[in-house]
């Protein structure tokens, strides 16, 4: 069943994991999505910087948001490739994402994470399967 933009946004925000990590949606329009994460010490690795699992989680999320904002269809991650460019600690980071190619069932999207200075700290590309109700 197709959902409205508000319903799709609410479904992201209703996820316990979403709020447990501390994500906040900055923009959620069709094809224009942004997410932010205030960095707190609970998200640190043993080196005292943002844990790599958080980068991957945030890129996965922004790609899913980009896809759902356009297709209004639930999707599931099949593959995700993350390149880690720089560490982050303190302040907040933001994520942007967009669709590269959309098929009937398979969608490929890419996204980036930026630190507070606007420098890119991670880039990822993912392949997702659309879950169509048929």
């Amino acid at each position: 069943m197709t959902k409205t933009m508000d319903e799709v946004r609410e479904s992201f925000e209703a996820s316990p994991f979403f709020s447990h990590i501390g994500f906040e949606i900055v923009q959620f329009e069709e094809g224009d999505v942004r997410l932010k994460l205030p960095i707190h010490e609970k998200l640190y690795n043993v080196n005292g910087t943002l844990h790599g699992g958080v980068h991957a989680t945030m890129i996965d999320l922004i790609l899913g948001m980009a896809i759902r904002s356009t297709t209004k269809t639930r999707c599931t991650t099949m593959n995700l490739n993350i390149n880690y460019l720089a560490p982050a600690s303190g302040g907040e980071i933001q994520a942007e994402g967009r669709i590269l190619k959309q098929g009937y069932r398979i969608v490929t999207a890419e996204g980036e994470l930026y630190d507070q200075a606007g420098d890119m700290i991670a880039k990822g590309i993912g392949t997702f399967k659309l879950i169509r109700d048929e």
């Binding site: 996820s15 844990h51 790599g52 999320l61 995700l80 993350i82």
Partner: peptide, 8 residues
């Protein structure tokens, strides 16, 4: 969430 498996 896939992020959990990514983190693992």
């Amino acid at each position: 969430p896939s992020g959990l498996f990514s983190s693992m």
